[in-house]
């Protein structure tokens, strides 16, 4: 099986879906001849033309709103938001409009759209090119959110997202675009939206993570394994709707839960995971549910030492696993 990068997997997914369904098109800033600022659509303009690789005006709200209208009209838009930090002008269209359309129309109008969103820090992006936005959007029934951490999942989840009749946000850990590599099989496959993935089986501590942090958690688990700590890593993959069974099954086995995300802690996604465990996994616990997250400050600072202070990494995760294992 060939080994490819995360971003190549995303590009392949779009290429295959564009080829499969003439209703699929990509819309966003610089997605045309430029091939996207991260090169996710490289070569697709040459292959599919200007009708289907649509360079939009520099305006996130209408990238999403035009996507909603086109999806309602039974096209299959893939809307690209250049950086997660820029998505807020489109917040109303995503939250009030696209995600509520099916419910508010009594199940008449679907919004089969994808919103691709490069997110996350550790790339020298400062306050406005580093943000994690999942907490804001995972509070929105009607929306689905996936976060791949492997090329296989990136390709399979994006293809599933394109075929889903609901709005699906694909959060792409951009620090891993080229850093994360993995094998994918030749030929057609999808990865279902919903189920979490056991990235590493273990008995002592459960680590719940997604995106870049799932990638780091797997590395941390190998580090502590050499010290005799057998950590289980659950890559949540789909944040909305959340796979509660996968969380509870893992805690039942290990009795200990560490939740890792790079987003700020207060009201972050980890709070919901902790609540699931507290509500339905209380009797399984042999220790406190712990969170390792970014600090509660307005963003990831630009300057390198401050950025590294902000970001969780494999070393910090390994330390957190050790602490919890000793509890």
């Amino acid at each position: 099986m060939p080994e490819i990068t995360l971003i190549e997997a995303l590009r392949q997914a779009m290429d295959e879906e564009l080829a499969r369904d003439p209703r699929v098109f990509v819309v966003g800033e610089d997605v045309g001849p430029r091939g996207g600022v991260f090169r996710a659509t490289q070569g697709l303009y040459e292959k599919y033309g200007a009708n289907r690789l649509v360079d939009s005006p520099l305006a996130e709200l209408s990238i999403v709103a035009v996507g909603i209208g086109a999806a309602v009209a039974d096209l299959r838009p893939i809307c690209e938001i250049q950086f997660a930090d820029f998505i807020y002008p489109a917040f109303n269209q995503i939250v009030n409009e696209g995600s509520r359309m099916y419910y508010r129309s009594n199940g008449a109008w679907c919004v089969p759209m994808v919103i691709r969103v490069p997110y996350g820090g550790g790339i020298g992006g400062g306050l406005y090119h580093s943000q994690s936005i999942e907490a804001y959007f995972s509070h929105v029934p009607g929306l689905k959110i996936v976060v791949p951490s492997t090329p296989y999942d990136a390709k399979g989840l994006l293809k599933s997202a394109v075929r889903d009749p609901n709005p699906v946000m694909v959060l792409e850990p951009k620090k891993g675009y080229r850093a994360i590599k993995g094998e994918i099989p030749d030929g057609e496959f999808t990865v279902p939206i919903g189920p979490a993935r056991i990235a590493r089986e273990g008995r002592d501590v459960s680590v719940f993570a997604y995106g870049m942090m799932a990638y780091y958690a797997a590395q941390a688990a190998e580090t502590v394994a050499q010290e005799g700590i057998d950590a289980e890593v659950i890559d949540l993959r789909t944040l909305l709707p959340l796979d509660q069974d996968a969380i509870l099954n893992s805690v039942k086995k290990t009795g200990k839960a560490l939740i890792v995300h790079e987003d700020m802690q207060t009201m972050g996604y980890g709070a919901e995971v902790a609540a699931v465990i507290a509500t339905d996994g209380f009797e399984y616990l042999d220790g406190p549910v712990r969170r390792l997250t970014g600090p509660d400050v307005p963003g990831v600072p630009y300057s390198h030492p401050m950025q590294e202070f902000f970001m969780p990494n494999p070393e910090k995760i390994a330390d957190a696993i050790r602490d919890l294992a000793e509890y």
Partner: peptide, 30 residues
């Protein structure tokens, strides 16, 4: 909202339907 009449559901937040209408028109042209 009347799907059989191609009337698209709207919210109470004014103007949200206008860029969506641009999307509907975009789909027509597409």
């Amino acid at each position: 909202s009347f799907k059989h009449l191609n009337v698209v559901s709207g919210s109470a937040v004014v103007t949200t339907q206008v860029p969506q209408a641009a999307g509907l028109a975009f789909a027509v042209k597409y």
